[in-house]
């Protein structure tokens, strides 16, 4: 596969993964990465620079919002929350991913459940 396509694919799916992880509750960066790694059984891992690069990009687009949270007896952390725009994007990307995945499965002959 072409290296550029690979990168774009990954990037697109990574954005989807982060938005999906933030759906339902705010999380801080480490939590996001850890959850994705855990849920994927370790198949998908982010390095620190690309994780925060992605988060900053999503925030710049207004899809998520980061805030420093100060809780008693806990460390200060920046937690990211899904915005309304983010929620809309997530729904859109989910739909797109379904269509894309179904197409890939059909062509590659993979059973998809």
């Amino acid at each position: 596969m072409d290296a550029t396509l690979d990168r774009e694919l990954k990037k697109g799916s990574a954005e989807l993964l982060i938005l999906a992880t933030l759906e339902g509750r705010p999380r801080h960066g480490y939590d996001v990465a850890k959850r994705i790694a855990d849920e994927s059984g370790g198949a998908i891992r982010f390095n620190v620079a690309s994780l925060y690069g992605l988060l900053y990009r999503l925030e710049s687009r207004g899809w998520i919002r980061g805030r420093w949270i100060e809780a008693p007896a806990a460390r200060r952390r920046r937690a990211y929350t899904l915005t309304a725009a983010g929620r809309a994007t997530l729904a859109e990307q989910r739909e797109g991913w379904k269509v894309f995945a179904a197409a890939v499965s059909r062509i590659a002959g993979v059973e998809h459940g």
Binding site: A49, G53, E59, S60, G66, W68, I69, P72
Partner: peptide
């Protein structure tokens, strides 16, 4: 990488926001 991150930092974070109320 740190320098690149700093550049991609969202523009609206020009000033550190005051701490938000607890989660």
């Amino acid at each position: 990488a740190i320098r690149r991150l700093a550049q991609s930092r969202p523009a609206h974070r020009a000033r550190p926001a005051p701490p938000a109320p607890p989660l």
